[in-house]
Amino acid sequence: MHPTELVKLTRLMQRTQGSSDIRIGLIDGPVATSHTDLTNGHLQEISGNNGASCTRNNSNACLHGTFIAGVLAARRTSPAPAICPDCTLLIRPIFSESTSGREHMPSATPQELAGAIFDCINAGARVINLSLALAQPSTREEKLLDEAFNRALSRGVLIAAAAGNQGMLGSSVITRHPWVIPVVACDLRGYPINESNLGSTIGTRGLSAPGDNITGLGAEGQILTMGGTSVAVPFVTGAIALLWSQFPDATAAQIKLALMS
C-alpha cells in the first residue's frame, strides 16, 4: 500500500495542496533549496547559527533536512510523498553540516532546540516538525525546552515529534510533554517497526505513521529510501498543515482532537 493511502491522506491531498498562510516550522538540517523538486515550494529561511541552504550536499544534516522537506513540500510530480507543497515551509536548521558519520537521526541539545522552537513560533509557524533526538540532556536545559513547549501550547502551535529509534519502551523530555504529538514509525501494513520506541505515553498521546522504505528526495537530485520515526513525523505534520489549510478557523485543540479521535 502507498504510504499516503495507509494514513488516508490521499483524498485530502486531492482536495488541496495546502495554503501559503499555513506555515510549518522545520527544525532539522539545512535543505538543498535549489533542488528542482523543491524550488516551486514556498520555502522561507529562518537562519540560526547556520544557513538554511546546504553548503555540503553530501552531509548527513543536508540529506536529512532535504528528505524531510521533500516529504512535506516537494512538487506533487516528484517521487517524494509531497504532502503539502503550497504551505510555507520555515526552514530553521539546527544540525551542523560538519557532523561526520551516518547518524540515523541527527541530535540537538535541549537549549538549541528550545531556541529553534521559539524562532519558529515568532515566525508564525502553526505546526512544528521535530524529526530529531536530544543530545546531552541536562535538568536546566530541559526546563528551557519545557518552556518552549508551553509557549507553543499557549500560542496554539502544534508539535509533531519523533518517538525515537532505540526500540525501547519509554518517553523522552520531548515526547512526554502533553502538548507534543509523539510519532511512531510503522511499516506499510501499519505495524510498528522494530526500531521505533513505544510506551504508554506515546501510545496514549501519539500517532503511528509510515516510516519504513519511504521514497524521497536526495540532496543531489538522486532518489533516496529512508525509514525510522524521523521519516514518519512529516506525515503527521503534513496532515495537520492540510487540515488547517482546509479549515483555517479551526483552533489547534480542534485539529489535535480531530486527529486523536
Binding site: 494514513v7 491522506l9 506515546i202 501510545g203 500517532l207 505513521a209 496532515a239 479551526a250 486527529l259
Partner: peptide
Amino acid sequence: RGSVVPPLLDAESAWQILSTVNT
C-alpha cells in the same frame, strides 16, 4: 486505549470531524 502502540494517523476521519464542526 491503554496500548503502547498509538493509533494509525487517519487524515480522512480528521477531515470529516472538522467538516462537521466548521461548516
